[in-house]
Write a protein that binds this DNA or RNA. Structure first.
Lengths: 337, 337
DNA sequence: CTTAGCACTCTATTCTATCGAGTGCCAACG
DNA sequence: CGTTGGCACTCGATAGAATAGAGTGCTAAG
């Protein structure tokens, strides 16, 4: 990496590139910027700066002799730096959100799916709303049962007697005795632990046992995410956001795996972030997507979260404003009712 | 239209064209059929027959010197004629459906969305499950209130005191006095009628009043559809079914309008059909789609329905088998619980 | 009635030539 | 020394021309 000296002019240029690219979806060139943006230098100077920005990893050229587009790092800088400039955006939007929440009524589930629809309509991206987590039940016991040499059924019984199950796919065959040992070990370690607060498996020495434990804990985490209620709306917006039908398919297929989306949102929030960009998501099929999330607060407690999924080339200011507005509105509404 | 004499060989050829096109998604030519299908005549003969089938409207050529693809009419004939040949399809599928319903558990809503997911996974098309209609409430009164010259708010109060509202968009301006007359007329005619069994508006003589009545009744029907619970899954399957991203967007946007989907399914069933093909749907953005539906029966009563939405180039035998299997399973499961 | 043969049509593919947006570099300028 | 106009260069996108081949309709013979 080159000496990152980000003076204010370079920052302004980076910002202009992001804004322009978000609008037009086409690589933006130096002369275009000189004309459009409020930057009072010649295109040659802009070219120099863009060159630097490229070497520092904020921009790339899709091919020589095209304009430039922001990298994930570029978007990240944009979000971190310029987001504070943004007031709560349009008044129009503000009013319609307020109106929505004063008129909203009906059951909780309806409230959430309506909120999800509101979000997707406000922003034209796909929206996610997670409901409050089910009361955290405690793990009582865990059983691993062989289905065939490489597939194992995980049974979890919780403190209320509910049984949840999940199939593990192993990479290597495992003996019955190992299964029994792992069952005992997991039950001993996890008994009384709430499903919501699982930590990583500690190493037990034996590699085969470890494999089982790691897989089991991963499966338990999935279970938790699966039992959470999720409302996702706006599939058609995904189809508008990308022009490769293949990307659309990949993204939609991923969004249909609710537990993935839930744990994605959880991960982002747990890092204290509210934006995750492209590769930062760590989910290959969503490499071209960004996620903007916010928790909503009822009686001082974060009970759930809302989020938007769109292309990395996303209108961050607008989306951040929408997410903040809606999460505040939702929290307030739920605190009253 | 030419003298439709559909002898058995022509029917076999039509069938083979549909089968082949469903598989390969490419126009099928005469020589290809002569090779692949179990038809023991030369390609020249097949060509002659295909020519006839085209003139009779069962097939078309996308362009001269491409193979042929079925028209909506072609699919219709295929479905009406050959569907009885089809046993309950794969045993594998049968078993997995049975297994699903013996293991199924959880709340009603969960049951429906799981069923929807089952359907979409079995078939690789988008699935729709409608829950039981809410207890049919009776209309108590109807009020039309002017918002601005061309927009009117319809208020409906039902027998339980619940208020539902809907905005009507008029093509012509309407006077206050007409609104009052229409309100009175509608209330008189519809008082005590269950929302579910609205019939078309009868003519009252006055054209302006009629416009209002027709619009109001349409709005009330929409209201009914909107309050029905719907579970739609498989957006990503839509993205796989079409290769024009624009078509994908259109179809997904339409599927997101739940009331449209619900009334579509209702319409198909009310005609005693269970398949609607392309233009038969009467919904422009779904012109390239087909819908296969089945009601499910609990304690002798049709309480809801399930359906699949895919491209007209859909695997009808498989989908019909799946729909029948699942509706039977769902009905049985709900009758027990 | 069926079928082999053939001329014909028209899309899809490939290749080439051209255009132009955008760049990097350099020399001149304030 | 930062800024700017000028310029040669690169490379994708677009348009046109040539070719290949799949598939047809028709005709004449079996």
């Amino acid at each position: 990496m080159v000496s990152d000296s980000m003076d204010s002019r370079k920052a302004a240029i980076l910002r202009a590139v992001v804004d322009e690219y978000v609008n037009c979806a086409e690589p933006v060139g130096s002369s275009h910027l000189a004309r459009v943006a409020g930057i009072q230098v010649s295109s040659a100077t802009i070219r120099n700066e863009m060159n630097l920005l490229e070497h520092e990893g904020y921009l790339i050229q899709p091919h020589t002799s095209a304009g430039r587009i922001p990298t994930d790092k570029g978007y990240r800088y944009y979000v971190d730096t310029f987001v504070n400039d943004i007031g709560d955006s349009d008044v129009l939007q503000f009013k319609s959100v307020e109106e929505f929440f004063t008129k909203a009524h009906g059951a909780l589930a309806e409230m959430f799916s309506d909120t999800s629809r509101l979000l997707t309509n406000l922003t034209n991206y796909a929206a996610v709303v997670t409901g409050p987590s089910p009361e955290t039940s405690l793990i009582r016991s865990i059983q691993l049962i062989s289905l065939d040499p490489k597939r194992v059924l995980l049974l979890m019984v919780d403190s209320k007697g509910a049984v949840e199950k999940k199939v593990l796919e192993l990479s290597d065959e495992v003996s019955e005795s190992h299964l029994e040992m792992a069952s005992a070990l997991l039950t001993k370690k996890l008994r009384g632990v709430p499903l919501g607060s699982l930590v990583e498996a500690e190493v037990s020495g034996n590699p085969e046992l470890d494999q089982l434990c790691v897989l089991s804990i991963a499966a338990l985490k999935e279970l938790q995410s699966e039992t959470e209620s999720v409302y996702i709306e706006g599939a058609s917006k995904v189809a508008s956001a990308f022009d490769a039908v293949d990307t659309v398919r990949r993204v939609l297929a991923t969004l249909e795996q609710h537990f993935l989306v839930v744990s994605l949102i959880r991960d982002v929030l747990s890092k204290g972030q509210n934006v995750a960009i492209g590769s930062e998501l760590g989910i290959e099929p969503l490499a071209e997507c960004s996620v903007v999330v916010a928790p909503y607060v009822v009686e001082g407690e974060r009970v759930g979260s809302i989020g938007l999924v769109g292309p990395t080339r996303m209108n961050y200011p607008k989306v951040l404003a929408a997410v903040n507005l809606v999460s505040a509105g939702l929290g307030k509404r739920l605190s009253e009712g």
